[in-house]
């Protein structure tokens, strides 16, 4: 994999930016661009930023959003309106003052093999968009997406533009294949495939079945409520096979077995 963007070194920083663009992708999904002041940090797919409206104390916390892409000093993100904070972000006009903390988290590492399978549930596609542009002839990438169905056409179209060839699955059968992305993935993976997942916890948990198909390497990117983004508040701690881990600094990318395997993952 050719990584033209080097991994971020050192801790995250608080940065100032402004809303560059914001467009609806239907069903409460938003594609947002943020123009940063100063130097653009280097980040890798899977890392995220905590983003909030500058100078506002309510809502208070930044929302953790995975980095989709970085073009010049504009960072792109995807989010779904699910509460006060994301509703506020979605309502801001271009030019609105923002604060960002990041890049946070570990991000995805280099794949071990040459066959990479990316499995996304709805907006879980966000960290994988960057990976599509990092791919090279050396690594063959297959992407799988799952959406509820009706109402998600615009979002799926957006994904197809950025990820031609992505396998589309919908719960209601109205877009692409009728079914879920895990079943679709199980239909073709085997030994030698490395699988990365990002999406709802139930989907990630179910993705563990790829082990039965001979896939050894399975990485998942987790979502958790968080506050500091630096590993201090312990609001995003999870129990794992190797003790307590913080999703914001030890993750969000983990080995599947570490978080869902064994007694701690039940």
């Amino acid at each position: 994999m050719d990584r033209s963007v080097a991994p971020m070194k050192g801790p995250p920083a608080d940065r100032r930016g402004s809303l560059f663009f914001s467009r609806s992708l239907g069903d409460h999904c938003v594609h947002m661009g943020v123009e940063l002041e100063g130097l653009t940090p280097k980040a890798i797919p899977g890392q995220f930023f905590l983003i909030r409206e500058r100078g506002v104390l309510d809502p208070l916390l930044g929302r953790p959003l995975a980095l989709v892409a970085s073009k010049g000093n504009v960072l792109e993100f995807l989010f779904r309106i699910s509460g006060r904070g994301t509703a506020r972000l979605a309502s801001l006009p271009p030019g609105a003052a923002l604060e960002l903390r990041g890049p946070c988290g570990n991000g995805f590492p280099e794949p071990v093999g040459d066959e990479l399978v990316l499995v996304a549930g709805t907006l879980g596609i966000a960290p994988f968009i960057g990976i599509s542009s990092f791919s090279s002839e050396k690594v063959r990438i297959t992407a799988v997406l799952g959406v509820p169905g009706k109402g998600w056409e615009k979002f799926v179209e957006w994904c197809l533009e950025r990820f031609p060839g992505i396998r589309i699955n919908s719960d209601d059968g109205s877009i692409g294949r009728h079914g879920d992305p895990v079943e679709d993935t199980l239909s073709f993976v085997g030994q030698g495939h490395e699988v990365w997942g990002c999406g709802p916890e139930a989907m990630l948990r179910g993705l563990g079945r790829v082990h039965e198909k001979g896939c050894e390497k399975l990485l998942v990117s987790l979502e958790k409520r968080m506050a500091c983004g630096t590993g201090g508040c312990l609001g995003c701690s999870i129990r794992t096979g190797s003790g307590m881990k913080r999703v914001c600094v030890d993750g969000p990318v983990f080995e599947w077995r570490e978080v869902f395997g064994g007694a701690h993952g039940k």
């Binding site: 309510d58 208070l60 409520r225 508040c233 609001g235 129990r239």
Partner: peptide, 20 residues
Amino acid sequence: REGNRGFRIMETYAGILNSI
């Protein structure tokens, strides 16, 4: 100590509830 199970933080109006 492993800390509390379940949700640990929740944003409130201009604040945070925590149960770490």
